[in-house]
Design a protein around this nucleic acid. Structure first.
Length: 535
RNA sequence: GGGUCUGUGGCGCAGCCAGGUAGCGCACCGGACUUUUAAUCCGGUUGUCGUGGGUCCGAAUCCCACCAGACCCGCCA
C-alpha cells in the first residue's frame, strides 16, 4: 500500500473528486462542466452545519478544478418550502403564516423580500465571509420560470410506481395515496394543506383539496377549497422525496453532499433520477450532523445554535474552513470551546506547509499540507503569518479590559512572543478578547460577588496591602512587598497569593502578581481589596 | 422496525477514510527558582486503543460478528 500514489492534494476531498471523475468516465457523460450543488435551508436560522454542506461542496469544486475540469457550485435556496413551525425567539405573529411558503412570508426584520430570503441571506453572508463563490438559485424562481416542468410531468405520470418505491425504501405509505406534489392553494395561499389526488396528464393539471394537516404537533388549518393547479403555470412544488431528482436533471448536477437526516430522501431521489428521469444521479457523500457538546442535535429551541456570524466574532474564517475540511466522517460535537484548538491547529498546519515542522510519513505530510491548501481555498499565502497561541491571547485579554489591545500587545512583547506591534495581531487580540468576554472571566467588579471566604488574619494583610497600593508612591519592589506583608501577618504566602488571584482574577493562580498589579492599576486593585474586606 | 456514528491513559480528545515506534490538552509529581506566582522552559507517571475472530511480515487503523452509548429516519421539508 505504501507505493500508492497521492491523489490530488491527498485529502478526502480529492479522493471524493477522483471517485466522481471515475464514475463520470464509466457513465460516459460529458465532463465539460461538472456542477456541484448545495441546498440551503430557508426555514430557520442557519448554523455552522448548514454552512458545511456548501463549504464542502465548494471543496469538491476546487478539487475538480485542480484536476483540470470546469466546475461551479449551485447554492439553492429551498424557499418554496412551507413554514412548519415558528423558530424559537420569533414573534408569534408568524403563526398566521404557518403552512405558507417562506418566500411569501414578510421578513420579520424588514430587510429582505421575505422571511425565506432573510434566512438564506444569513447563510450566504457566512459563505461570503469565508470566501466561498457560488451561483445562487431560488426555488421560487426555479418553479416560476417552469424550469422543472418536464420533470414534474414525468414524475407525476409515474407517481404510482414512485409511491410504491417510497414505501419500499422508507416505509412511508403516504405517497401511495397522494401525489408527490404540493400545489399552493388558490384560496388560502398555503401549500402543506393541499392534498393532490389526481393528475390529468393531458392538461398537465393537478386536482387538489385543501384540508387540515398535522405537521409535528402543529395542526395547520386548511380552507376546504377544492381546485385545479396547472403545473406549467400555477405555483406549487414537488415533495422532497422526488424534488432533488428533478433538480439534478434540470441543472445537470454531478455532486451533492447530504446529511444523514435526509438519507432516505436521497435514496428515493437517486432511484427516481436513475429509473424515472433516466438521469444518472449525482455522486454523493454522506456526513453526520453537528451536535452540541452533550451529543444533542443543534436546535434553536435548545439555545445551542452555533452560527457563523457569532463564531466569526471570536475566530478567523479559516478556523471554520479548517473545521469543515479537516474531516467529513464521524459524529461531530461542536461548540465555541473548540475555537482555541482550531485557531492553534491552523498555525500548526501552516508550520507544516512551510516546512517548519517535519512530518515523517510522506502520505500524512502531503495530506496535512493539502488540508492547509484547502483551508486557504487552494490559494495559500506566500509567507506564513505571525503565530500567537490563541489560549495565551485569551488569558491576556481576560486580564486586561481597558485599552486591551495596547496592554496585551505590550505583554506579548515582554514575553518575547512578538517583536513589534502588528495590525494582524490587533485583529487577533480583538477576537480573543471577544472570546474572553463571552466565555471567560468576569470583570473585576463582579468577582467579589462570588463570595470568597477570607479569615481575619488574611483580612488584616489585605488591608495593609490595600493601603500600600492606594498610596501615591509606588513601592520599589511590589512583589517583595506583598511577600513581606503576608509574612508579617502570619499568612502563608502561598495562601495569600491564592486569595489575591481569587479577588483579582477569579482563579486560584495567575501571572506574577507584582508587575501584574502595576499593569492593571494599583488604585483599582486597592479598591477591589478594600471592598473584599468589607463583606 | 430501519440506518448512521462513537467507544483510545483519571478526564476531554487526536490519530482510523492511503496499515509501519500510541500521541495531545487538562490533571498529577519533580526541577529551573535561597521568595511566594506560571501565561515560560525541562523532565516524569498514567494505555490489554469496547469484546471476539479474520486478512497481513505487521492492525487503534482494513474485514466480519458481538456489546455499550448517542443520533437520525419511520410527520414534513
Amino acid at each position: 500500500m505504501s507505493e500508492q500514489s497521492v491523489i490530488g492534494k491527498g485529502t478526502w476531498i480529492d479522493k471524493l473528486a477522483h471517485e466522481l471523475l471515475e464514475r463520470e468516465k464509466t457513465l460516459g457523460r460529458s465532463t465539460e462542466m461538472l456542477r456541484v450543488e448545495s441546498g440551503l435551508g430557508a426555514s430557520g436560522v442557519p448554523h455552522i452545519g448548514s454552512l458545511g454542506d456548501a463549504v464542502r461542496a465548494y471543496g469538491v469544486k476546487l478539487a475538480l478544478e485542480n484536476f483540470g475540469y470546469k466546475s461551479e457550485l449551485i447554492a439553492y435556496s429551498d424557499d418554496l418550502d412551507g413554514l412548519r413551525k415558528i423558530p424559537e425567539g420569533f414573534s408569534d405573529s408568524l403563526k398566521e403564516h404557518l403552512g405558507k411558503r417562506v418566500s411569501a412570508i414578510p421578513d420579520p426584520f424588514d430587510c429582505h423580500d421575505s422571511y425565506g430570503m432573510h434566512m438564506s441571506s444569513l447563510l450566504l453572508d457566512g459563505l461570503d465571509k469565508l470566501g466561498i463563490k457560488y451561483e445562487f438559485r431560488r426555488a421560487k424562481d426555479t418553479y416560476e420560470k417552469g424550469l422543472l416542468k418536464d420533470q414534474i410531468h414525468t414524475i407525476l405520470q409515474n407517481s404510482k410506481k414512485i409511491g410504491e418505491k417510497i414505501s419500499e425504501i422508507t416505509g412511508q405509505e403516504k405517497f401511495q395515496q397522494t401525489l408527490p406534489y404540493f400545489p399552493v392553494c388558490k384560496n388560502c395561499d398555503k401549500l402543506y394543506t393541499t392534498e393532490a389526488y389526481e393528475y390529468v396528464a393531458d392538461e398537465k393539471k393537478i386536482k387538489y383539496r385543501c384540508k387540515d394537516s398535522t405537521i409535528g404537533s402543529q395542526v395547520i388549518d386548511g380552507c376546504g377549497h377544492e381546485g385545479e393547479s396547472d403545473i406549467t403555470k400555477d405555483l406549487g412544488k414537488l415533495a422532497w422525496k422526488v424534488e432533488f431528482a428533478a433538480r439534478w436533471q434540470a441543472f445537470d448536477i454531478r455532486f451533492e453532499a447530504y446529511g444523514k437526516d435526509i438519507m432516505d430522501s436521497v435514496k428515493v431521489n437517486d432511484w427516481v433520477s436513475d429509473e424515472i428521469l433516466k438521469f444518472p444521479h449525482p455522486h454523493h457523500v454522506k456526513y453526520e450532523m453537528f451536535l452540541d457538546k452533550g451529543g444533542k442535535k443543534i436546535s434553536k429551541s435548545l439555545g445551542n445554535v452555533v452560527t457563523s456570524q457569532e463564531w466569526l466574532k471570536y475566530a478567523s474564517p479559516k478556523s471554520i474552513l479548517l473545521l469543515l475540511y479537516k474531516r467529513i466522517t464521524g459524529a461531530r460535537e461542536l461548540g465555541f470551546e473548540d475555537i482555541p484548538s482550531l485557531m492553534d491547529e491552523y498555525n500548526e498546519l501552516e508550520n507544516i506547509f512551510f516546512g517548519k515542522i517535519k512530518i515523517d510519513n510522506p502520505a500524512k505530510a502531503s495530506k496535512l499540507k493539502g488540508l492547509y491548501e484547502y483551508v486557504n481555498l487552494l490559494n495559500p499565502p506566500k509567507n506564513p503569518s505571525i503565530h500567537i497561541n490563541y489560549r495565551l491571547l485569551v488569558e491576556l485579554a481576560n486580564i486586561f479590559h481597558e485599552d486591551r489591545i495596547k496592554h496585551v500587545m505590550k505583554k506579548l512583547i515582554e514575553y518575547h512572543t512578538i517583536i513589534n506591534p502588528d495590525p494582524s495581531i490587533e485583529e487577533k487580540i480583538e477576537m480573543a478578547g471577544n472570546y474572553a468576554d463571552a466565555f471567560r472571566g468576569k470583570p473585576l467588579e463582579k468577582v467579589l460577588e462570588d463570595g470568597i471566604t477570607i479569615d481575619k488574619t488574611t483580612k488584616n494583610a489585605l488591608k495593609e496591602l490595600a493601603e500600600v497600593l492606594a498610596a501615591e508612591d509606588e513601592p520599589d519592589d511590589l512583589q517583595n512587598t506583598i511577600y513581606q506583608i503576608a509574612k508579617k501577618n502570619n499568612v502563608p504566602p502561598k495562601d495569600f497569593f491564592k486569595i489575591l488571584y481569587q479577588i483579582i482574577l477569579a482563579t486560584t493562580r495567575g501571572p506574577k502578581i507584582g508587575p501584574f498589579i502595576a499593569d492593571i492599576g494599583r488604585k483599582k486593585v486597592a479598591q477591589a481589596l478594600s471592598r473584599s474586606i468589607m463583606e
